[in-house]
Design a protein around this nucleic acid. Structure first.
Lengths: 188, 188
DNA sequence: GTCTATAGGTGGATAGAC
DNA sequence: GTCTATCCACCTATAGAC
């Protein structure tokens, strides 16, 4: 399959960005992992910025697909929020940071295209969460002050930050506790 | 003054790490900013890891000094928390990330010494916050569920995460809103 | 303490054969 | 599509003169 190599490149690159950051890996790392040469990687992704952009696009697509499954499997807003946080926790349990959380830290050195792609990921997260929060308020299953958008932004920030620090301590429980606390504050 | 150059190096390096990350700057960047050669930088900081370690130590010292001033100037726990959050906001307003928040993202590529120095910064933050939270609970000026240590960890994570994302949007208000929300959840 | 000069390595990227 | 070979810029770091 022609496309198969590109997918494997993305798989390895994704893991590298989530553990070492966009500035913390090179084409040589991917080449070594896949037993190919750097030159052949440039055939699939001419510049590193191309690889980075395709990485974010795929990550967002997969993430939104997971949110779609949450919508399909969970009815109540509290359960949706719990599953949302569980996605983050699974990433951390794999020893990784959220791809876009990582890129947010590296914002100052990112190419323009990757910057807006990264923000788009957070915008979509906020949009989905806002819907869940509004649903919960309507149903009376959630209780929070202020706007749903503001609460959504705060939750995303809290989860990303907790994840980043917990990873530095190699302590998933630390993330879990912060996550539980954040959900309780929304009445979940 | 002999020590003056080292301080200026640290000033520039600090700004670079807070905006571009530890892996996002080089001795050449500092050399250019200070109109000296790279070689002379190695006289003050033989290896980049030395520079990194001294950077964290100084950042923590200054941060703890700021917390000491908060203790001296604010009496009530809620006011202390507000001033704590204001320190973060001032950093963000300067277009910077928290030095250690930045390093937490780069954890996967950091030398061992910098890893433990970075965690020490967060440990000290937690310790101070825990004291303030216990004070507030004792005085009845704060109200939160669970342990003070857990609440402290959650607050640190929420502020770091909100800061990181807000910076990507160039939007200090976004941070401020998340910060206010986090403080309110502690009853402040 | 700061300089010139340079070593030795790695970064992203390209040309051209197969 | 993948390879060999190579370019050039940049990286951290050191030697040794001043």
């Amino acid at each position: 399959m022609a496309n198969d190599t590109a997918q494997r490149v993305l798989d390895v690159a994704e893991q590298l960005v989530q553990t070492r950051g966009y500035n913390g890996f090179s084409y040589a790392d991917i080449a070594q992992a896949l037993h190919v040469t750097k030159a052949s990687l440039h055939y699939h992704f001419p510049a590193k910025a191309d690889l980075g952009a395709r990485l974010i696009e795929r990550y967002e697509r997969n993430f939104l697909a997971a949110l779609g499954r949450v919508d399909a499997q969970a009815k109540g807003a509290p359960e949706k929020l719990r599953r949302y946080a569980a996605i983050y926790e699974a990433v951390l349990r794999a020893g990784r940071m959220c791809l876009c959380g990582m890129l947010a830290a590296e914002f100052g050195t990112l190419p323009d295209g990757m910057r807006s792609d990264m923000r788009h990921f957070f915008d979509e997260n906020e949009r989905w969460l806002k819907g869940v929060l509004q649903q919960g308020k309507r149903e009376g299953t959630l209780a929070f002050a202020g706007s749903a958008a503001g609460a959504a932004q705060a939750l995303i920030g809290a989860l990303e930050g907790a994840m980043m620090i917990a990873r530095s301590y190699g302590d998933v429980d630390r993330f879990h506790a912060a996550s539980e606390r954040a959900l309780k504050e929304l009445g979940a």
